[in-house]
């Protein structure tokens, strides 16, 4: 019996529980080496194409750093510098890239389902770096790894995610991964920003912020975008902050003693996070950024089969 390894990562459920734990253990080792400044050379003959059809700074930088740490040949394909503006279809772009012999596509696209679309035209490995509202598996992995570093276990871990669920691929992937790992997930979002079928999901749902934060081990805020106001989804950022902004006193009095604060970034101070809460010692937002690079290194190695350290 041999373990099947995933080749692609469209969403977190392409990995089994054991694989996720393997990636976490590997990440711990990589983190030590990374902080010592050591590089890995085992994937130096592989070429990765970062296909970013939707603007992204931090995810793209994080992937690029991870790929360079693995000594890979890195090809960046951005919307601004590509033929996309001249209306080349994605199919033709993939066929063009394929003829350059790409081993791995890292793809970000505003369209859900893009990774599966690429699969039709290429045999390379594919990592989903965010597809529309659908999934953002590498964010979920780095989030869960950050929780694992802090709590060492997911059993009974209470994770409350607060903010715009409807437009969040981060939430969708997080729910799947955290359920797989055994955590209890609660979502707190305005009714206009919750999917209509939210009651059918394996989560607790509330629109009472205090109820969500009470006894939580992890409180995760989500970015609120101003444009939602003009879509009739909420009245004002001020009212949003009043009822859904995570505040220091609330966090410190209601959440569990060792609770941590997380946020996928970029943060809006004064909107989803009040005051200086992002600068408090229990805020792990910058750890998440670092863990993003670490877990992406571990993940690429896992998918492309690089040697161990």
């Amino acid at each position: 019996m041999f373990a099947m390894r995933a080749k692609d990562l469209y969403d977190v459920n392409d990995l089994c529980h054991e694989e996720v734990m393997e990636i976490f253990e590997e990440s711990k080792e990589i983190k030590k080496a990374y902080l010592r400044g050591e590089k890995i050379f085992s994937l130096k003959d592989k070429t990765v194409c970062n296909l970013f059809v939707e603007p992204s700074t931090r995810t793209k930088n994080s992937f690029e750093l991870a790929e360079k740490y693995l000594s890979m040949n890195v090809l960046n394909f951005n919307t601004s510098s590509s033929a996309f503006s001249k209306k080349e279809t994605l199919k033709d772009t993939i066929l063009t890239m394929k003829s350059m012999k790409i081993d791995l596509f890292v793809v970000r696209h505003k369209e859900p389902g893009t990774p599966a679309f690429i699969r039709k035209y290429s045999d390379a490995s594919i990592i989903n770096a965010g597809d529309g509202l659908h999934a953002h598996p590498t964010q979920a992995i780095l989030d869960a790894f950050t929780m694992y570093e802090n709590f060492n276990s997911f059993k009974g871990l209470k994770v409350s995610i607060i903010g715009d669920f409807y437009h969040s691929r981060v939430v969708r992937s997080n729910i799947k991964l955290l359920n797989m790992l055994g955590a209890d997930v609660a979502i707190c979002s305005p009714t206009t920003l919750s999917p209509r079928e939210i009651r059918t999901l394996p989560i607790k749902y509330t629109h009472d912020l205090k109820e969500a934060i009470k006894d939580a081990d992890v409180v995760m805020g989500l970015r609120m975008q101003l444009e939602r106001q003009s879509q009739g989804l909420f009245p004002s950022l001020k009212e949003y902050n009043k009822y859904f902004g995570i505040k220091e006193d609330m966090f410190e009095t209601l959440a569990n003693k060792d609770a941590i604060l997380m946020h996928p970034g970029p943060i809006n101070r004064g909107v989803e996070l009040s005051g200086d809460i992002a600068d408090k010692p229990y805020s792990k937002i910058l750890d998440q950024v670092q863990n993003g690079v670490i877990t992406r290194i571990a993940l690429i190695k896992h998918l492309l089969g690089g040697d161990s350290l």
Binding site: P112, G113, D131, G132, L133, H134, A135, R169, R172, P195, R196, E197, I198, T200, L201
Partner: peptide, 15 residues
């Protein structure tokens, strides 16, 4: 169509 599947696969739904 807005429903369980649209929520699951992240496609904007039409009520």
């Amino acid at each position: 169509r807005e429903g369980e599947t649209s929520c699951k696969i992240g496609v904007y739904g039409i009520p």
